[in-house]
Amino acid sequence: MKSLFKEKYNSGNFFLMAGPCAIEGEEIVMQIAERIIAITEKLNIPLVFKGSYRKANRTRLDSFTGIGDEKALKILAKVRDTFGVPVVTDIHAANEAEMAAAYVDVLQIPAFLCRQTDILVAAANTGKYVNVKKGQFLAPESMQFAVDKIQQSGNENVILTDRGTTFGYQDLVVDYRGIPIMKNMQVPVVMDCTHSLQQPNQTSGVTGGNPEMIETIARAAIAVGADGLFIETHPDPKNAKSDGANMLHLDKLQGLLTKMCVIREAIMKL
Results as ranks from 00 to 15, higher is better:
D81G: 00
D62H: 12
D90M: 11
K71M: 05
V79L: 00
D69R: 15
R80Q: 02
L73T: 01
V85F: 10
A72F: 02
T59F: 10
T59V: 11
K71W: 11
G68W: 08
L73R: 01
H92A: 06
A72R: 03
K74Y: 02
L61D: 14
I91Y: 06
L61M: 15
A93D: 15
K74P: 01
R60V: 05
F64C: 10
H92V: 09
R58P: 10
F64G: 10
D90V: 04
G68D: 04
R58K: 14
N57K: 12
L61R: 14
K74S: 09
G68I: 07
A94V: 10
A77W: 00
R60A: 10
A93R: 10
A77K: 13
L76F: 01
A72M: 02
N57I: 08
G68C: 13
T65M: 13
K71Q: 09
K71Y: 09
D62F: 14
R80M: 00
G84E: 11
R60M: 12
V79C: 02
P86L: 05
R58C: 12
E96Y: 10
A72P: 07
V88Y: 11
R80F: 01
D69G: 12
A93P: 06
S63P: 09
F64A: 11
E70I: 15
S63R: 12
F83T: 13
R60E: 08
A56K: 07
P86Y: 03
T65G: 13
G66V: 11
G68Y: 07
K74Q: 04
R80T: 03
V79I: 03
T89C: 05
V88A: 13
D69H: 08
T65V: 13
E96K: 13
K55V: 15
I91S: 03
R80S: 09
L61T: 14
K55C: 03
R58V: 12
D62C: 08
I75C: 12
A72Y: 03
K78Q: 01
F64L: 02
R58Q: 06
G84V: 07
R80Y: 01
E70W: 03
D90R: 08
I75A: 09
D90S: 14
I67N: 09
D81W: 02
H92R: 08
V88W: 09
V85Q: 06
I91E: 06
P86N: 11
R58A: 10
G66R: 07
I91G: 05
N57V: 07
G68Q: 04
G66P: 07
V88H: 07
D62S: 14
N95I: 08
A72S: 06
V85C: 15
N95W: 08
N57Q: 05
V87H: 00
F83K: 13
P86C: 08
R80A: 06
S63H: 08
A72I: 01
G84A: 07
V88R: 05
A77P: 02
I67L: 03
I67F: 06
I67W: 07
A93F: 08
A94P: 14
I75E: 11
V79E: 00
T59S: 15
G66W: 14
P86E: 05
I75G: 08
T89D: 02
E70K: 14
K78N: 02
A72W: 00
